[in-house]
Design a protein around this nucleic acid. Structure first.
Lengths: 197, 197
DNA sequence: GTCTATATCAGGATAGAC
DNA sequence: GTCTATCCTGATATAGAC
């Protein structure tokens, strides 16, 4: 059964809301802000959505389904361990490029949203993300291509943090493409910034 | 002239507020939350402070004066370029350990606070922080101890992000001391995670 | 230095008309 | 699908008593 025409409007409104949530924060964005940006009145929003929470909920769920599907594909794929890790980093920077607002919301608002029961799935996603990176790292260590003298947990946090925090400054159309950023980040992560003569 | 006794109470209240701002966010912490945590009523807070904004203002100013003083000392000091960079990283992790709340507030709330005129000095601090890291990196490159094939701006962001974002997960008394975390992070940053046989 | 009491306002949400 | 009108709650801040 085809999506009704109103789904388009729904997605428009969600995109507007996502932009505001990402820029100003969830709590700090009012339903009136969203309605203003959409050119309607705040009451009209409730024809489309139950609540402000429902909006951010739908935004995050859609985004995460896509992202984690990509990670699973990489792990299940047949690249060698190092290439898998590199691919996961590249996909993450692609995601920042393609879903900037959603990534920013997840980064900045997850802690707050987790205080509500309906967002407890975010904790599960965090757990899943940790699994992905630990699996990739352990694969590289087992294959002998990654250092085995580092604390795995710290290394995982280092990678996760450096990848996602880039959403705070990356803007499409800036000095570097997301591909170039991924390339340089991987170069630092893999080889370090120390110069060996 | 000695600080009046009431300064102690003032600092107590600021420490309580800082903890809440760091944990729940500035906007999401109410003056009643702060008063509750202090065991007084919300109206009583206004005997000590003009407004909620004044509280976060004082918290950030005190903290930043100390932190940037340390960076200036490092740059003005006589360590070699690599040691200066390492020292700046170590000092940053020490700061996360010692002033967790303040770092978290600066990390999470600066963007929002910058929308108010009274917090425009935060933009200046960001500029200053960029200067510090760029100076340290350029010093290392000029001395031939750091790679010169990386984009300086990206490298700066990589380091800055990696260092400060650790405040989101670091807790004193956890599995690793801040010194150990700094050591491992520096090892990744300088040498990379690639294993060279 | 804290409390009582309260002014004032903004924000989320609803009901029913158009 | 949007608007009008409005309810209700919770938040910052104030004034003056204790």
């Amino acid at each position: 059964m085809p999506e009704p025409v109103s789904a388009t409007r729904r997605e428009e409104l969600l995109a507007i809301a996502a932009g505001l949530f990402a820029e100003k924060g969830f709590k700090n964005t009012t339903v009136r802000d969203i309605a203003d940006a959409a050119g309607i009145l705040s009451g009209s929003l409730y024809h489309h959505f139950d609540s402000k929470e429902s909006m951010v909920d739908e935004i995050l769920q859609t985004f995460q389904t896509e992202l984690f599907g990509q990670y699973e594909d990489i792990i299940a794929g047949d690249l060698d361990p190092l290439a898998k890790l590199e691919r996961a980093v590249v996909v993450s920077f692609e995601t920042i490029d393609k879903h900037r607002d959603e990534v920013a919301i997840f980064q900045n608002e997850a802690a707050y949203l987790l205080t509500f029961d309906r967002f407890s799935y975010l904790a599960e996603r965090n757990r899943q993300s940790r699994e992905v990176w630990l699996t990739l790292l352990q694969g590289g260590i087992d294959a002998g291509v990654l250092r085995d003298d580092l604390d795995l947990e710290l290394t995982y946090r280092f990678i996760r943090d450096t990848v996602w925090v880039a959403v705070s400054w990356y803007r499409p159309g800036g000095r570097h493409t997301h591909t170039e950023i991924a390339r340089q980040y991987l170069s630092i992560l893999l080889e370090g910034i120390h110069h060996h003569a």
